[in-house]
């Protein structure tokens, strides 16, 4: 009985039709995802570098922000563009410019004195970084080759809990391959500066 039922061609046509209908419904669902805005922007539309809604790092007086592999969320919230994957010690810039975004937690200061801990990559002897804060030119740094050094940056604050965007433009970003330092042909990073972190220092510390 069941065999004769199954062997009827109409049953197979009917089941094929049901399957096609199921595929259409699933295709419709697949094309209309029910995902968070962060997921949509990061994975589907690719309009965001962040797959989560964590805020950018923030800095308060006498505190610091450090970079490194232990803080992967900073890769998109704070190290906005032009930075490599984070290493245990921090991260390298990998393009002609690099952008940093963070929040300054204060409603009582008119400026913040930040001390940046950086490394230079200057195999040809000169590497300069021009520093812009919120689009305004602020300073020029001379980065020593493969040596850790510090630079101060004076940031005027116009409102409480201000979000600051710092852009670094590099004079001579170098491809590692030019110096036989690339590990393989997929390594196309143009390195200029390594960033370990920065701290908000009080003026008296800056004078010491």
């Amino acid at each position: 009985m069941s065999h004769s039922f199954w062997s009827k061609p109409q049953i197979k046509y009917g089941l094929a039709g049901v399957l096609c209908l199921f595929y259409l419904v699933v295709a419709f669902l697949a094309l209309n995802p029910n995902a968070s805005a962060e997921y949509q922007a990061y994975y589907i539309d690719r309009t965001s570098n962040c797959h989560h809604s964590q805020a950018p790092a923030s800095i308060a007086p006498s505190t610091s922000i450090r970079f490194g592999a232990q803080r992967p969320h900073q890769t998109c919230t704070t190290l906005i563009e032009g930075w490599d994957w984070q290493q245990p010690w921090g991260t390298w810039s990998t393009e002609a410019s690099a952008t940093l975004r963070f929040q300054i937690q204060s409603d009582a200061h008119q400026h913040a004195q930040l001390l940046f801990h950086v490394l230079g990559f200057a195999p040809l002897g000169q590497q300069k970084a021009w520093v812009f804060v919120n689009g305004t030119y602020m300073d020029e740094w001379h980065l020593p080759h493969e040596n850790q050094t510090t630079f101060e940056l004076h940031i005027p604050l116009t409102r409480a809990d201000e979000q600051v965007e710092i852009e670094f433009y590099f004079s001579n970003p170098h491809e590692l391959a030019w110096f036989n330092k690339a590990t393989n042909p997929i390594d196309q990073r143009k390195v200029a500066m390594g960033l370990l972190g920065f701290q908000w220092i009080e003026p008296h510390m800056a004078n010491e």
Partner: peptide
């Protein structure tokens, strides 16, 4: 695809 849609919203 159907499972993924129901599990995390994106098939």
């Amino acid at each position: 695809i159907f499972y993924l849609y129901h599990h995390m919203g994106d098939g």
